[in-house]
Design a binder for these strands. Structure first.
Length: 460
RNA sequence: GGCUGGGUAGCAGAGUGGUUAUGCAGCGGCCUGCAAAGCCGUAGACGCCGGUUCAAUUCCGGCCCCAGCCUCCA
């Protein structure tokens, strides 16, 4: 029985899809004006695992993840770069796709872009104006009147008066209420603009997700997700807009991924403490990043440091060292074991990946324990280990590939030649020479293992 | 000020009203020419103060501390 923590109710709830065995899920994706950092990777990897898991449990998941390709920061950045906003966004959309591919993130079923849904956004704004939930200000900009939506604040668990007390931005003369947010913004000369019944302009940030999610998934769907920082105001506003138009529940379950922290601070662009995905991939295997992300529960803050990533690497090596012992070429569906049940119940408990990983390590130990006495059973467990790890997107590589991959240039020919020399030295029981070669290899970052008459090597 | 979520062994990080999380690191052993890998064993923890209970790290209350949101942010 799958339970998911719902930000809306602040409880873990038994998950039930609107249509049996089908799930419609929307995740707020990236604004494309710069490279993605590890914090973005966390969100994408978490939902990647959510989708993989749900599919493995027989759900047909319709996974929509948008791209925001028009917004103030994009306009500003394009202006700074003296290029069109399309040139800018196209470049970063491509970078985003490269990053996601490198991380092994499965593609969303659909990846709508804001600029392709301008008409749908305008349709929503029209309804909100007709219903007088939105108003046109003196400037011509159109705002959402938060006072008209009685349950405003239900997702972030705040009340309008509390919010107003904490206002810390200068209040625009234009708005009736400082918390009102823009739906349509009139264009200044030189800014990107679209025709609308209210004049040339561009959409506000929040309306795009209402338009895209409802267009792609319907007015009422199962899961809506994103980073923690989107709870307020973004998702709150999405609810206000969508439910303001439809008068029915927008999304049933709201999932939010915790922050990635560096030195106890949130990783963010403004603090300048971020690491881009592509930079980290220069030093670490994608599965190491994935392991690191999954080693904490998705709602908790996750601390980043190089030491922790190194630890993730060592942990993954342990699992790969187990799989290396077997030739898992056959297409075998392993039988249920006592481990499988625990793996599944961990995942069913709000995607508790740290606990699921712990189960994988227990399988690994069991394999090591029995492999000499009962090779067949060990092999079955190895198949199971690989299958369950695949749900997390791990252990998908050939073990020797993973274990012999290095971020530095390695000279495999030289390594193998040295190993050959050492084998000869060992046959002659020339331990001094053998150890000297081993030291030499170690200096190259190569670790040697002598087992069952063979010598194997791996990196680091 | 309001609202969220936290504080678990050297590090990371789950979980539980009484029983080994897990990974890395440590200690002892087995294996090995020596290592590596692996196995067995072992040590070490639940912010502070009260309360409930036969029993609390786990429930309740208070306090302290940390992070985040209330402006754009995944």
């Amino acid at each position: 029985m799958l339970k998911i923590y719902n930000t809306l109710t602040q409880k873990k709830e038994i998950f039930k899809s609107l249509v049996d065995k089908k799930i419609n899920m929307y995740v707020c994706g990236m604004t494309v004006y710069d490279y993605c950092h590890l914090g973005h990777a966390r969100v994408m990897l978490v939902f990647d695992v959510v989708v993989r898991y749900l599919r493995s449990q027989g759900f047909e998941v319709n996974y929509v993840c948008n791209i925001t390709d028009i917004d103030d920061k994009i306009i500003q950045r394009a202006h700074e770069n003296k290029e069109t906003f399309q040139e800018l966004t196209q470049r970063y959309i491509q970078a985003l796709e490269e990053d996601m591919k490198a991380l092994g993130v499965i593609s969303p079923t659909k990846q709508p872009r804001a600029t392709s849904y301008i008409a749908e956004m305008q349709a929503l704004i029209s309804v909100l104006l007709e219903e007088e939930i939105a108003y046109r200000a003196v400037s011509g900009d159109i705002y959402y009147d938060v006072k008209k939506f009685s349950s405003y604040g239900k997702l972030s668990h705040r009340h309008l008066d509390e919010l107003q007390a904490g206002i810390r931005v200068e209040v625009s003369e234009d708005k009736k209420n400082p918390l009102d947010f823009v739906l349509w913004k009139m264009a200044k000369p030189g800014e990107p603009a679209w025709d609308s019944p209210w004049g040339r302009g561009r959409p506000g940030w929040h309306i795009e997700c209402s338009a895209m999610s409802m267009q792609c998934l319907g007015e009422h769907f199962d899961i809506h997700g994103g980073g923690f920082d989107l709870i307020f105001p973004h998702h709150e506003n999405e609810i206000a807009q969508s439910e303001g138009v439809t008068h029915k529940t927008f999304a049933n379950t709201w999932m939010h991924v915790g922050y990635l922290q560096v030195n106890k601070e949130k990783m963010s662009k403004s603090l300048g403490n971020f690491f881009t995905i592509r930079d980290i991939l220069k030093k670490y295997h994608p599965e190491v990043i994935r392991y690191f992300i999954l080693s904490s529960q998705y709602r908790s803050p996750l601390h980043y440091s190089e030491e922790i990533l190194n630890n993730a690497q060592l942990a993954l090596e342990r699992l790969y060292l187990v799989l290396r012992e077997f030739n898992l070429k056959e297409n075998i569906k392993p039988a249920s074991s006592r481990f499988r049940e625990r793996f599944l119940s961990s995942m069913n408990d709000d995607f508790n990946t740290p606990e699921a990983l712990a189960v994988l390590f227990e399988i690994a130990r069991e394999i090591n324990r029995i492999k000499n006495e009962n090779e067949e059973e060990a092999k079955m467990l190895a198949y199971e280990l690989r299958e369950e790890a695949a749900i997390l997107g791990l252990l998908t590589e050939e073990p020797s590939n993973f274990l012999q991959k290095s971020s530095k240039e390695i000279d495999v020919k030289r390594i193998e030649m040295l190993i050959q020399q050492r084998v000869l030295a060992r046959l002659e029981k020339d331990w001094k020479q053998a150890d000297k070669i081993r030291d030499e290899l170690f200096a190259l970052g190569v670790v040697i293992e002598d087992a069952e008459g063979k010598t194997r090597w791996r990196i680091q």
